[in-house]
Structure formats: structure tokens, C-alpha cells
Design a protein around this nucleic acid. Structure first.
Lengths: 224, 224
DNA sequence: AGTAGAACGAGAGCACCGCTCTCGTCGACC
DNA sequence: GGTCGACGAGAGCGGTGCTCTCGTTCTACT
């Protein structure tokens, strides 16, 4: 059972995260102020250090939350029984929608890393959840036989651990296919980031239509 | 002719930018401190405000410098007489090399925008220089007849102004081709950013080989 | 040539930041 | 019931961007 103190601690930790999330959404990660969070909760700023040893630790918690939320969005958009190509479209659209709805969180996840900040190991696990959704589509496509046969290149560009996530073992999946999957995944990121960060301003007429068009192009590249 | 004061002003402005560039390279944009620049130059911090009205304005100047340096790197890597595909490879490799050599500058250009910062019009002009290099390759390829014939889609996804840069008018260039060019360009950005920001850590075995492989894949997609 | 005025750099100061330390208090466990 | 740890408040340190004032110096016009 949990003591009153433990419950109070968990509740306050959640409140801190909630306030920080709100501030992240409004002013962005760079301007996220520990003191503002403390003010918001009616606490002394020093009290927060009982819960998060530093501002970076708080940011780390927010990053993990963000990866988790994005991963959940991608997963809930995926319909495992649908055709691989429509699944790919659905996941990509969900990722873009999440990014547009939470621009600051997205920037925190996939934008420039914060100053001297090195991503702790906890974050990479959470980050994998998003890529895993794509990996499942690829694996299912291979098992359903919709992928063209692989050519079996020698040099391994993709790590064995990553290959596990990207469809697992299957004759239609070789290193080249998995590398292409990584290309499409990073391309998706490039598309969303360019749109979100304004690099497509004045260049792309209809961002939504452009995005779906290009996601289809990426599906062709992948062979879905 | 220029007065002594004007020359001193220009010289000091250059010194400020040089010191800021050095600090940007070492500690990154978020930790770039106006006071540190002032200390470096032996000035009072308030004196800097005679030259740059705010820290953001100084960052803007650095952004323009960065776009210009990256654009110059891309241009000098381009050999207009070579085959379009080798030109594409050379430009992509040059952009990646510049990014790896100047990670903080690259993050400043293509990472998360700084807090409430809206890119001034000056920066978008400088930003176009990099994309224009790709646009020239595409246009030359079309004029050389190496591109497959276009299908002439109805809906225009790419702005007329951007179409001008992306090869200009040519029968082999329609909206779909130009949209694909934007896709490959943002994909290149996604590849480099993922590598630079650590999202490929533990996933890609040989970043260099992976990059050139994927750039080739993008060239195929473009039809080069 | 002389002067009005703009540009200049220094310095003090404001409000804010992350973070540390101390101190009185309150709750949990032996 | 007493001990000890967790807790929150408060003061304080060094840092930040930015503003204002003040004496100086150079420019340009009369």
C-alpha cells in the first residue's frame, strides 16, 4: 500500500509535469522556466528540486512523454487488418497531425538537441515506439507477399537490432529494403519538419495535399 | 568615401559576428551569450546594443551567414558540366559534410526555430541559395533530356515562384516533378538531421555509406 | 573655425533565470 | 514516543537580456 506522503509525491510530480507541459506548449522548450512552473503551482522554486534534480531532467521527462504520445497517436491510427499502403498513409498522416497539433513538443523531440544535453537511454526506448509502427507495416507487408523480392546486398547498413524492429526476418526483407524504410521514415520527418519550421513557406501551395502526395511517393519507393 | 567612424563600426560589427560565430560553434545557439561576446571583445555588454538591437538580431545575422556558407559549399561542390546524377551526389555530399563540420550552425538553420522568433525576410532569401543549386541540376537535366516525360497533373502543389527556381519552364518539368524535387530536398534534410541529431544512433551501421546509398535512391526517385 | 548634435562605450540597475544551502516542520517507521 | 528523513520556504549566488544615464569623441553644418 502507499503512504500519504507517497501519494502526495506522485500527485505533485504529475502536477509539475502537467504545468510544464502546458508551458512547453505555449512558450516552447527554450523558454520553459522552472520558476514559472513553481509560480503556477504556488510553490517555491527550490521545492521543485525535490522532484526533478534539474531543468534538463524535467525536459527529459517531457521528451519521453512526447515520444509516448506520438507513438500512441501512430499506433491508434494504424489498422493492422488494412492494406500496408493505406496503413502507411494513415500512420504518416497521424504523425503529421500530431506534429501540427503539438509543434513545440515535436520540435523538442526532433528539432535541434538542447545545448549540452545528451539524450539519456530512457528516451531512445520511447523514441523507438514510433519507428516500430512503420516496422510492423513493413513486416506484415513482407509476410503478405506484397513486397518485391529482395536482392540481398552484402554490406549491412542497418544494425541487427534495428533490423529486428524493421520487419524481422523474412526472405523479402534484406538490408536494402530496411535501409529504404529508414530513408522513408527520415523523409517523413524531413517533410513534416520543413512544413512545421516554415521552410516550405511560399514554396508549397497546399501543404496538406502536398504531404499526402509525397507520402504516396514514399510508399512507392518502399514498395508498399 | 568612408569616415573613420564608419570603418570602425564596420570592423567592430565584423568582430562581434566573428566572436559570436566562434561561440555558436562551441556552445550552440541556445547558450550564445551577448555578455560573453562582450567579454571576449573587452567591451561592456551594453555597447553591443549599438550594433545589434537584440540577441535575436545577432542570431539572425548568424543565420544568414550560415545559409550563405552552406549555399557556397553546395555551389562549389557542383560541377555544371558533369552528369546530373553525379552533380546531385556531389551537392548532397557537400551539404552533409558542411553539416557535420558545423553542427551547431546547421541546427540553427534547420533545427527547431528559436522561441518566439519569426524568421525575417532576409533569411529566406539566403535560404533559397541552397535549394537553387538543386534546382539548377534539375533544370539542366530537363534541358539535356535525361528526365522522363512529365504527365502534367492539374492541381498545382508548387508555387509559381518556387517553380521558377526549380528548373524553370520546360516540357519535361511539371508540377509533379518539381514536387518530387522538394521531396528529395526535404528528404536530404531528414537524412542529415537524423544522423546529426542522433536518431540513427544504434540503427545505422555506417552513416557515410548509408547516406550515399540513400542519396542514390533519391536520385532514382527524381529520375536523374 | 566653431559649434550643435549624433554616435559611442562604460557603468549601474532591473527583472529574470537555474541552482544551492539552510532552517523549521511534519510525517513515517522502529 | 522518539528519531530521522522528506518536505517546502526563504535567502542568496552568479548568470542572463536589456534599459537608462552620463561623459566623451567624432562628424557635419554654419
Amino acid at each position: 500500500m502507499s503512504t500519504a506522503r507517497e501519494r502526495a509525491r506522485a500527485a505533485l510530480t504529475a502536477e509539475i509535469l502537467e504545468s510544464a507541459r502546458g508551458q512547453l506548449a505555449t512558450v516552447g522548450a527554450a523558454a520553459l522556466s522552472l520558476r514559472a512552473v513553481a509560480r503556477d503551482l504556488g510553490l517555491a522554486s527550490s521545492a521543485l528540486y525535490r522532484y526533478f534534480p534539474s531543468r534538463d531532467e524535467l525536459l527529459t521527462a517531457l521528451i519521453i512523454e512526447g515520444y509516448d504520445a506520438l507513438g500512441a497517436a501512430a499506433e491508434s491510427a494504424d489498422v493492422p487488418t488494412a492494406q500496408p499502403r493505406t496503413r502507411w498513409h494513415a500512420i504518416c498522416a497521424a504523425v503529421r497531425a500530431w506534429a501540427l497539433a503539438h509543434p513545440h513538443e515535436y520540435a523538442l523531440l526532433y528539432g535541434s538537441p538542447v545545448p549540452g544535453y545528451a539524450a539519456p537511454q530512457d528516451t531512445v526506448a520511447a523514441a523507438g515506439r514510433v519507428g516500430a509502427a512503420l516496422g510492423r507495416v513493413l513486416g506484415d507487408a513482407a509476410r503478405a507477399g506484397v513486397l518485391p523480392p529482395a536482392e540481398h546486398r552484402r554490406t549491412a547498413l542497418v544494425t541487427p537490432a534495428a533490423a529486428e524492429v524493421l520487419g524481422g526476418e523474412h526472405p523479402a526483407l534484406d538490408d536494402a529494403v530496411r535501409a529504404r524504410a529508414l530513408l522513408t521514415w527520415s523523409s517523413l520527418y524531413g517533410l513534416i519538419s520543413f512544413e512545421l519550421f516554415g521552410h516550405f513557406a511560399g514554396v508549397v501551395a497546399d501543404p496538406e495535399a502536398f504531404f499526402t502526395e509525397q507520402v504516396g511517393e514514399l510508399a512507392d519507393l518502399l514498395g508498399l
